[in-house]
Amino acid sequence: MGEFQDPSRWIRRFHPAADSGVRLVCLPHAGGSAPFYFPMSRALSPEVDVVSVQYPGRQDRRMDPAIEDIGEYADAIAAEIKPWLDRPVALFGHSMGAVLAFEVTRRLERDLGFVPLAVFASGRRAPSRYRDENVHRRDDDGVVEEMRLLSGTDAQILGDEEILRMVLPAIRSDYTAIENYRAAPGLTVSAPITVLTGDNDPRTSLEEAEAWRGHTTGAFDLHVFSGGHFFLANHQDEILKIVSEALSTSLPGLPGGSASIA
Rank of each mutant, 00 (worst) to 15 (best):
L232V: 09
D69L: 01
P255G: 09
E3M: 15
R58E: 08
F4G: 06
D199I: 13
F231G: 02
F230G: 00
I242W: 05
L240G: 13
A184G: 02
G256L: 06
E145D: 14
P116G: 06
S248P: 10
H229I: 02
L85V: 09
H29P: 04
S205N: 06
V144S: 01
F230N: 04
A79L: 15
A259F: 07
D174S: 10
Q236N: 12
T217C: 03
G123T: 02
L27N: 10
D69M: 01
L222H: 02
E47W: 14
S122M: 08
D160F: 15
S8M: 08
I239T: 06
L44I: 09
H136W: 13
E245Y: 11
P88T: 12
P39Y: 05
V22F: 11
V50K: 08
L149T: 15
Q59M: 15
I171N: 03
I261F: 10
A233P: 01
E133I: 10
D139V: 03
R106Q: 15
A43P: 03
D69V: 01
A184Q: 11
S95I: 04
V189Y: 01
R62V: 09
D64L: 14
A170V: 07
G123V: 05
G71S: 06
S248C: 14
D201A: 11
H136I: 02
I81E: 07
L206V: 04
P185Q: 06
P185M: 04
A90V: 09
G152K: 02
P83Q: 15
V224P: 00
Y37I: 07
A78Y: 04
I163C: 12
R42I: 01
G214F: 01
D49G: 11
A98K: 03
F14D: 13
A126K: 06
S244W: 06
L232Y: 08
T217F: 00
D141W: 01
A118E: 08
L150M: 07
E68W: 00
D141H: 08
G31P: 03
D160K: 12
A101T: 04
D139T: 05
A219P: 02
A34E: 05
S52D: 13
M40P: 00
Y175R: 12
L100I: 07
M40K: 05
L44C: 14
D140H: 14
D111W: 07
R58H: 10
T204E: 11
E80H: 12
M96N: 07
K82P: 03
W212D: 00
P65H: 13
G214W: 03
P88W: 07
F120M: 02
R148S: 00
D6W: 12
V143S: 00
T194E: 05
H235D: 06
A259L: 07
V143K: 01
I157Y: 08
M63A: 08
R12K: 11
E207Q: 15
L240C: 11
V144W: 05
F231C: 04
A79F: 06
H229F: 00
D64I: 04
P127Y: 05
G228E: 00
